[in-house]
Design a protein around this nucleic acid. Structure first.
Lengths: 140, 140
DNA sequence: TTGCGTGCAAAGGTTTTGCATGGCA
DNA sequence: TGCCATGCAAAACCTTTGCACGCAA
């Protein structure tokens, strides 16, 4: 978890204000750029990338990698859960591509188990569980 | 799981022969290209990409994504475990890159839980659990 | 002979970087 | 004033695609 940037800029404020309107949703850097463009007040894409990467370091955003050809997803974390391990797990259907978000207590136990028994600290932000969703299982 | 390609080519044979020399290790398409280049018998990179993608479909290779800027990793699966529902889970350290194979009863519970409670059939062959290994946690 | 596989080069798309300019403290 | 942040354009990177040629069956 890195330090904040030293300066408070208009772009940074606007970016955070926007992110607060989409808590818990998955958005990409491109989404953000487009949102500002539609607003008639575009922000440079390198600024968006740099600030968002910084916000990940500050714990304000989570960053998820779903697969190599999709852009990275960012998710706004509400201030009250900044410290908490309030991250979600992702399941992706190999067949239809559907992405499922799991906020599940029991999956937290996996993390403790891996840490306690195997010394491995699981990072849910980078981990995607692949498999078949309910609908696709039925289709055979 | 898709069908095999219709033709048996020299390039495909050489590729499989090479993969058999690195079972259980994670390699990238670039690694493969370079290995053949060093051998003095290069293979076109598009051929490598196309054949490896095909081998993933055949179940001969697993494909893993670490993060968006690293190239995709492929892992050779030995023939004897092709059909098996590979009770082997993979943990990969995001820092040192170490690959850990876990054969653990308790992790089987993840699968039952996901299936029972969330209707999701986890495929351990496609799934890598990312995080930090013991040594890298200590280094901070 | 048929048509799939190969290989080169170029495109594709996301993210990063160089560098001059502008704004925060 | 001093330094950081911005923004444009271009680079970097991995991967895919178009197309002509060659090889497997």
């Amino acid at each position: 978890m890195n330090a904040r940037p030293k300066y408070k800029t208009k772009q940074r404020d606007k970016l955070i204000a926007y992110l607060e309107t989409v808590p818990g949703r998955h958005i990409t850097a491109g989404d953000v750029c487009e949102a500002f463009r539609r607003d008639g007040a575009p922000i440079g894409q390198s600024t968006v990338y740099r600030q968002m990467e910084s916000l990940v370091g500050e714990g304000v955003l989570n960053k998820y990698i779903i697969d190599e050809k999709s852009p990275a997803c960012f998710e706004y974390v509400r201030p009250e859960s900044h410290g908490a391990a309030g991250t979600c797990f992702h399941c992706k259907c190999e067949r239809c591509g559907k992405l499922i978000h799991l906020h599940c207590e029991e999956l937290e136990e996996i993390r403790s188990h891996l840490l306690g028994e195997h010394g491995f600290r699981l990072d849910p932000r980078r981990t995607v569980l692949y498999g078949l969703c309910e609908a696709c299982q039925e289709e055979g």
